[in-house]
């Protein structure tokens, strides 16, 4: 096997893995802050990316401003979902399964609405920075991929710091771990949950905007992203954004290695069988108990 092929596959695995990781991070943030398994996380990405596409190509806004609005749209959508549905359901002690059903329903509606209002076409965004290509170890690297890797790392670290050091982050964690206790020391638990959804929505939208220069976004892609992000987040212990990032990377690299080492026909078979094995071997997630509790 030649070095170029190996390097290229590894790079592809990392790139795809980060895609899953970005979705997984948002999912984990929402689960961490609200115990809602968000089956529409991929839809945040679709909405974020579509907003940027519309502003950029439809209205000719500057790229940075369009990106900002894209991220904001995710946050707004997240806040809307919390205020309109989740808050009401929690107040009335809805059973646990119903949050999954709710988010599935929202995901279906958004996907269908994107098809209805924006059509079946898939959209691409221009890469960040320039369109330069670099050759590393005989593998071709687009400049955007470097941006993607850098920003993903920054987001993961930033999120970790946010939960550990900022006052809002600490309050959000407290409100989720012990809502009654948090309320008794004056934390607005409901507001913190709204923040959690805004954060998750913004992260989802950011993921969508980051991947759209590489992966064309269309009305169908949301569910696919959610499934992979769900896998990444669970591998990482579900409540830990850092774990989700590692879970995503593991998933992406396994996929690439399955194609190179075995056969592209059996990529999904190998990847998801391994996933089951990993879960059986490490029932606490990749980071073990620390991954389940830590921030």
């Amino acid at each position: 096997m030649n070095v170029g092929l190996l390097a290229q596959s590894l790079l592809a695995g990392i790139t795809n893995g980060l895609t899953y990781a970005l979705i997984g991070i948002g999912l984990a943030a929402i689960f961490k802050g609200s115990r809602v398994p968000n089956a529409m996380q991929g839809e945040f990405s679709v909405v974020g990316a579509i907003v940027v596409v519309l502003l950029l190509t439809g209205h000719g806004w500057p790229y940075w401003l369009a990106i900002l609005c894209g991220g904001l749209s995710g946050a707004i959508l997240g806040a809307f979902i919390e205020v309109a549905f989740i808050r009401y359901m929690i107040r009335n002690a809805a059973p646990e399964d119903s949050y999954l059903l709710l988010t599935i329903g929202i995901g279906l509606s958004i996907s269908a609405a994107v098809l209805y209002f924006f059509g079946r076409e898939s959209h691409l965004l221009p890469g960040f920075g320039s369109d330069n290509l670099y050759i590393i170890l005989d593998a071709v690297v687009r400049e955007h991929v470097i941006w993607l890797i850098a920003i993903s790392i920054l987001l993961t670290i930033g999120l970790r710091q946010f939960y550990r050091t900022t006052s809002v982050g600490l309050k959000m964690m407290a409100a989720s771990i012990d809502p009654v206790g948090a309320a008794s020391i004056g934390i607005d638990v409901t507001l913190m949950r709204t923040f959690t959804f805004m954060l998750g929505g913004a992260l989802g939208a950011a993921a969508g905007i980051l991947i759209t220069p590489i992966i064309p976004v269309d009305y169908m892609i949301g569910l696919q992203l959610t499934l992979k992000g769900f896998a990444a987040a669970i591998l990482g212990g579900l409540t830990n954004p850092l774990g989700a990032a590692i879970g995503g990377l593991v998933l992406g690299i396994i996929e690439a290695m399955a194609i190179v080492g075995v056969s592209s026909s059996y990529k999904d078979v190998i990847t998801f069988s391994l996933l089951i094995l990993i879960m059986i071997a490490m029932p606490q997630g990749l980071l073990g108990r620390a991954g389940r509790t830590g921030g």
């Binding site: 030649n2 170029g4 092929l5 290229q8 596959s9 790079l11 592809a12 695995g13 790139t15 795809n16 895609t19 593998a139 590489i214 992966i215 169908m220 892609i221 696919q224 996929e255 690439a256 194609i259 190179v260 056969s263 592209s264 026909s265 990529k267 999904d268």
Partner: peptide, 20 residues
């Protein structure tokens, strides 16, 4: 010869094998 799922979002690794 390389295969990918119908709705695959990325086929870089398959393409790299073909390139080789």
């Amino acid at each position: 010869t390389e295969k990918f799922e119908i709705s695959a979002t990325d086929t870089t690794t398959q393409a790299a094998k073909i390139r080789a």
